[in-house]
């Protein structure tokens, strides 16, 4: 079984915070990490490989630095790494990104199973997985929390819904996006790290994957960011002061009027 896992390098969102003085994002010390959901997708891919046999290829679209994330993926069990990198990809929205990634998957010979994290923590769009599947014309399942079986050319899994979960089955080739509940990602092994250090990352540019120039990067994007701003928080504040009993009395009064 040929498994492709799509991973994205993202800024560690928990470090991104507002600088109260400049009201801008302070990014001192913000590290680039593998999108946390993608770590779970990778782990699931590696487990499926270990159970059913096959290979795991990690694929990322990004600047050359994203190679570090691919090496990390190799240390965690991926066999091969492919980076799609071209300045022409910059500014891509999800429409352009899915074109690029689906072209890359075709270029490397397709896949029996494609795994993605449910979303990336920088954009949170959750669109790339389904978009790739649609462009490749294959079925998909989102928010997968458990793979039940993967046999006889079909995969059966449980996907989360807002009110429970559905057990569904689809024939391969197929794509799935996973939630964190699906597994506990492993810590990279020593042999994996050694392999990651020496592995040659296949790097493909826009021409290599036969990308349609009208469908990549900023130009190929269907959406456009017109404004970026920091969220406005409501300012009216009445501080209740006094002894504990006085404060509680005021709170009771407020609650009574509200309830």
């Amino acid at each position: 079984m040929k498994i492709v896992v799509c991973v994205k390098q993202v800024p560690d969102a928990k470090d991104v915070r507002l600088d109260p003085n400049t009201n801008t994002l302070a990014r001192d010390g913000v590290q680039s990490i593998m999108n946390p959901y993608d770590r779970h997708a990778l782990e699931e891919g590696v487990r499926l490989k270990e159970q059913y046999g096959g290979t795991v290829t990690v694929l990322s679209m990004g600047p050359p630095q994203a190679g570090e994330t691919l090496r990390e993926a190799v240390a965690c069990g991926a066999d091969e790494a492919v980076l799609v990198s071209d300045r022409a990809f910059a500014g891509a929205d999800t429409w352009a990104t899915t074109h690029t990634l689906s072209q890359a998957i075709k270029k490397i010979g397709g896949a029996d199973l494609i795994l993605c994290g449910k979303q990336a923590i920088d954009g949170d769009t959750a669109q790339v997985g389904p978009g790739i599947a649609e462009r490749l014309g294959i079925p998909y399942a989102t928010y997968v929390k458990k793979v039940v079986t993967c046999e006889n050319g079909a995969i059966r899994l449980q996907r989360m819904m807002d009110d429970g979960y559905d057990t569904v089955e689809m024939d391969l080739p197929a794509l799935m996006t996973v939630v964190k509940e699906i597994n506990e990602p492993r810590i990279p092994s020593l042999k994996g790290k050694m392999k990651a250090k020496s592995i040659a990352i296949t790097t493909l540019n826009a021409a290599d994957i036969g990308a349609d120039p009208d469908q990549i990067g900023l130009k190929g994007s269907t959406t456009q960011v017109v404004r970026v701003f920091t969220p406005q928080v409501r300012g009216e504040r009445a501080m209740l002061t006094g002894t504990v009993d006085e404060v509680v009395a005021q709170l009771v009064e407020k609650l009574e009027s509200l309830l």
Binding site: D93, T94, W95, T98, D124, T125, A126, Q127, V128, G129, P130, G131, A133, E134, R135, Y140, T142, Y143, M160, M161, D162, S221, T222, T223
Partner: peptide, 23 residues
């Protein structure tokens, strides 16, 4: 932007070749 909306709307947008803004 529910489990269902976030799952199949991206497919709709992709097949219509149009933009989708999530959440």
């Amino acid at each position: 932007a529910t489990a269902i909306g976030r799952s199949f709307i991206p497919r709709v947008a992709t097949s219509l070749a149009t933009g989708l803004t999530a959440d």
